[in-house]
Design a protein around this nucleic acid. Structure first.
Lengths: 247, 247
DNA sequence: GAGTGGTCTAGACCACGGT
DNA sequence: CCGTGGTCTAGACCACTCA
């Protein structure tokens, strides 16, 4: 192990608290501490990096703002574990027209490993010819098809998903990404459009062809901004309600 | 004027920096300084309220986080003036299908002062029978109708809008709300649905009745969360693209 | 060069959680 | 009780802006 003082060897043009924040963020990303773990106390960090308490606090403030850790007075500072339900409500923005948010059950229709088509390659920022996992998934509420989803994931991080039994796929994928693949989704970017159902989508959604469908295109990203998932979901337009808070 | 020290007479259960933040926020809301004005320097505030520099900084940090002020090194701290274009891109989330964001021109079709219908009353949290301003507005790009908007505003704050010449209404309403009515929009909440155009909407949007239209319902709020505007916009579904960042 | 915000120090004391 | 994070002090020095 290192000595009790561990000087920051980073870009000295940056403020100390930034260097410390980056150092800690790097170590969290490298799983030095896992989600739910305690990181060293503020006074411990003060000693270890030979900086003042205020500097440590500012570094941790930044990590809290970025959602990487959570403080708990009297206990310590913990690496944040995204909660199942909150990640549901953070990313599941559709409600039934009556306003309730039901969690639709899901069924994987297809799973394959293939070379990334050019559109996927550029969206996920992959090298040419890199492999991707492609999932087709149907989400159903009370026997009514609600969404048909096409999901693309870089095989470099998600290849394990090819080995999970199809029946073991959970309703919520993001907790599984974290537990099975060690990949945490931190943010996402969505684009909504409306189109008329083609023959194939109409069949899967049990709609007459030409019915309006909502298309939600989502790119989900890690804490460092790396795109991890590209997802395109389609559902009958008359059954959806999409809610957003703008700040 | 007050003496050079002006002790905080607020809830002493709250941290000092919170009390100072609230004190400054109250004075900003009461227009002691107008948008664009300098507030007193940090050392001035230190003297005036007899607190340490770190406490003043934390109070101002909070105001910055809430979007009330902006710091500028070497110059000072200014009451924030929402910029025209940023407020445009903060709240105007539609793009043409080709991806550009054009600012549609706008024309007020109708303006009236009436008692709030119950739905408007509860959304804007008004007292029974309170008056509201209702605007109907058409937004047009290159002679093509893009959006038909129905806008409801509490007359208590927006009655002046009844006196502005209809031809003087600008393309962007939020800067006008600020300049003419002193009301700043800080956040909003939007809900999207899809419906089929009825006869009236179809006529205004120059579409065949029954064409899918996107409906965007927005409640826009002040910094303290008071609902200030309720707006319902409708546009042809096949021409819209709605983009959102989720954090 | 005077004045501003930005960073940093080296502590003190308090409130809370668990033993 | 001890260790944790939360608040607060009373400064110092730096980087930037503007006259």
């Amino acid at each position: 192990m290192s000595a009790s003082t561990d000087p920051l060897q980073r870009d000295t043009r940056l403020p100390l608290y930034q260097q410390l924040r980056d150092e800690l963020a790097t170590q969290i990303a490298a799983h030095r501490w896992r989600p739910g773990d305690l990181i060293p106390s503020e006074s411990e960090l003060t000693r270890q990096f030979s900086v003042a308490t205020g500097t440590v606090r500012k570094a941790i403030d930044a990590l809290v703002a970025d959602g990487l850790v959570e403080r708990s007075q009297g206990k310590g500072t913990f690496v944040r574990r995204p909660r199942f339900d909150s990640s549901l409500f953070r990313f599941f923005r559709f409600e039934s027209v009556t306003g309730e948010r039901r969690i639709p059950e899901s069924r994987i229709l297809k799973r394959e490993l293939l070379s990334a088509p050019t559109a996927v390659q550029s969206t996920l920022r992959l090298a040419k010819g890199e492999k991707v996992v492609r999932l087709m998934r149907l989400r159903v509420v009370e026997y009514k098809p609600l969404l048909i989803e096409e999901i693309w994931l870089p095989a470099s991080r998600f290849a394990v998903l090819m080995d999970v039994a199809l029946t073991d796929y959970p309703t919520l994928l993001y907790p599984m990404y974290e537990q099975v693949c060690g990949q945490m989704i931190a943010s996402a970017s969505e684009t909504l459009t409306v189109e008329l159902a083609n023959a194939s989508h109409a069949r899967l959604l049990q709609l007459p062809p030409g019915t309006p469908v909502i298309v939600i295109e989502r790119v989900a990203m890690a804490y460092d901004g790396t795109p991890l998932e590209w997802r395109r979901s389609r559902g009958p337009a008359d059954h959806f309600r999409y809610h957003v808070e703008i700040r």
